[in-house]
Design a protein around this nucleic acid. Structure first.
Lengths: 227, 227
DNA sequence: GTGGACTGACCGCACGTACGGGCAGAGTAG
DNA sequence: CTACTCTGCCCGTACGTGCGGTCAGTCCAC
């Protein structure tokens, strides 16, 4: 490798992050089962053994991808929940954030969404699963709050959260950041239909869905410093 | 095998359907990549060679699963579209039907939804992809009709169809037919939120979402003769 | 005889990963 | 400064296994 500046004397890491990023991209493009050490190593000009050295097993590698992803999502969610109080705005923020991720970190997002199913049963995924559940519970709580406040019409909050996550998690199968529909378009349309479906009045939902509105701007600020 | 009645002298097929059903179940449980001929053959008490004899390759087997599934869905869709005229009822029918399938044919549905992504690029999937596109176009057309008729508020029909399919296609990751929430509950909640989000008035959407209402009954009749 | 259903042994390959060793920098004693 | 050692990153290879697919041949119905 013609990598001159590997920051000599680097305590931890080295090419670790590089490996994880490439692996993530391969998982996004082919799925976990078809992603393999050989291709990742070849692309990085290193040996398969190096990858094993850093991560041990393929399972653990995926687990680390999932955990890092969910940690960022959780941090970000706490960030905009702290700045937005109204339930309608909070739900809109979750939608804007969910769509944003497909653009900000397409590989990680697709990798996560393709392989979410492994969170349910696979061993070694307990942490990531707990994070995912925590995230969903944040949404459910907001739905309950909105219902209690009379902003949302009564309904099954859990089912509604699953309906919402379904729309967002399915995006990886069709969304193209360079396609005709921009992320802002998608977020706005999803917000409008969802919030209207929850019983939010038109002026409120129009403001919350607006790609240039306060909610979208708040989410952009929170998500901007991509860690 | 203690299978006495294999209908001796069966012209075509023989154990063909049986093989396809078992393969489908394995794909549903483990995903396409982890499903293999050996396990299917062992479960059916036959040789791997028999499976190859009937289907040639694994790819073609999956393609056949997808095509059969989509054919049934298309037939069924044309069935209820012929009996229901109002756009709101038609959309509700698509939702009821989508949820029903997770109960009527859980294995095939999960297998299809897990592996839909292969429809987009994989060669040999042209037929299934065309069927999938045709199905989506049916929904988009209904959304346009409803918009033109003033029943739905204006919006991006394509995006709305994707939002709707996302909710339904994601079900395989969480829905349990024997769980606390029945398919009827899910369909009703999804219908209400979606139709309200499209701007349908409360009495109309309540009737269309009702698990015992005319729309759900119509869908049940059309889907009943499971081919 | 003819043709389709089915068998079971076998092939080749791809992939995860175990293992032994090389090498460069940091710390330390002299 | 030098020499030695320790440590962590990295390499290359080799191994075991699992799996898709091939093939020659048997059995059986017509």
């Amino acid at each position: 490798m013609s990598e001159p500046a590997v920051a000599p004397g680097r305590p931890r890491g080295g090419r670790r992050d590089e490996i994880l990023a490439t692996f993530t991209r391969h998982v996004a493009e082919r799925g976990y089962d078809r992603a393999n050490f050989g291709d990742v190593a070849a692309e990085l000009g290193m040996s398969k053994g190096t990858i094993v050295h850093h991560f041990g097993t393929k399972d653990r590698m995926l687990a680390e991808v999932q955990e890092r992803y969910m940690r960022r999502r959780l941090d970000e969610a706490h960030g905009f929940l702290a700045r937005l109080a109204a339930p309608a705005e909070r739900i809109a923020a979750f939608v804007h954030a969910g769509v944003r991720y497909s653009v900000d970190e397409p590989a990680t997002t697709v990798a996560f969404q393709r392989e979410v199913v492994r969170l349910t049963d696979e061993p070694g995924m307990e942490t990531a699963r707990a994070q995912r559940d925590a995230y969903r519970d944040l949404v459910v709580a907001v739905l309950h709050d909105g219902e209690a406040a009379g902003v949302f019409v009564p309904g099954d909050a859990r089912l509604r959260s699953l309906q919402m996550f379904g729309s967002l998690h399915w995006m990886w199968t069709w969304f193209d950041p360079r396609g005709r529909r921009s992320a802002a378009d998608v977020a706005a349309e999803f917000c409008r239909t969802l919030l209207r479906g929850l019983g939010v009045d038109e002026p409120t939902l129009a403001a919350a869905a607006d790609p240039d509105g306060p909610v979208a701007r708040c989410v952009a600020e929170v998500c901007a410093p991509r860690s």
